[in-house]
């Protein structure tokens, strides 16, 4: 067999030498290894007080963005739903009425926008597919729940709350 890593050793059954039979040198060697670890810097993160930073490209739960005037960006084109490999997104579109211009940026908007968080694989393809800069994956974790039905996130949970800015914690551009 050709070795890929060049680290493999051929095991040979041979008589032990006297030093090997005495065990002590090997034991001392082992103790040197453990004492080295004893003085090593510990990688522990003291969790509740200290939190580990997420990776820059971490993909958590989704957010439906609003623009600077607080209007929803989503135009219910359905490209995210098409792109979604897990078929987690379902959208019902509706036409913007007169007087709703301050609510929705485009003439068509999503009446319901649901993501099934149990189906979602957080691949971020919806984010890439979106032509209207509407759906993004944030750094937040999708929270646990006791009920399956609560994992279907509607617009109440997904749309960016009014008055919030493009904060890095809740909103991060995927590619810049």
């Amino acid at each position: 067999m050709h070795s890929l890593s060049n680290r493999s050793k051929v095991v040979v059954k041979k008589e032990m030498t006297l030093t090997e039979k005495m065990y002590l040198p090997a034991i001392l060697g082992g103790m040197m290894i453990t004492i080295k670890h004893f003085f090593k810097r510990k990688p522990t993160i003291q969790y509740p007080e200290q939190k580990r930073e997420f990776s820059k490209v971490y993909r958590g739960r989704h957010i439906l963005k609003r623009d600077e005037q607080g209007r929803e960006n989503c135009t219910a084109c359905g490209l995210c739903a098409v792109a979604c490999p897990a078929e987690a997104i379902s959208i019902v579109a509706a036409e913007r009425k007169k007087g709703e211009e301050h609510l929705y940026r485009e003439e068509k908007y999503a009446k319901t926008y649901e993501i099934n968080m149990l189906r979602c694989i957080f691949c971020g393809l919806c984010e890439e597919a979106c032509p209207k800069d509407a759906v993004y994956l944030t750094e937040e974790l999708a929270p646990a729940n006791f009920d399956r039905s609560n994992f279907i996130f509607g617009k109440d949970k997904l749309v960016q709350p009014v008055g919030t800015s493009a904060h890095p914690k809740t909103y991060k551009p995927y590619k810049k």
Binding site: T34, I35, H37, F38, F39, K40, K42, P43, T44, Q46
Partner: peptide
């Protein structure tokens, strides 16, 4: 403590 430190824990 010793066990933890040897095993790279706190």
């Amino acid at each position: 403590k010793v066990a933890a430190f040897i095993q790279d824990r706190l």
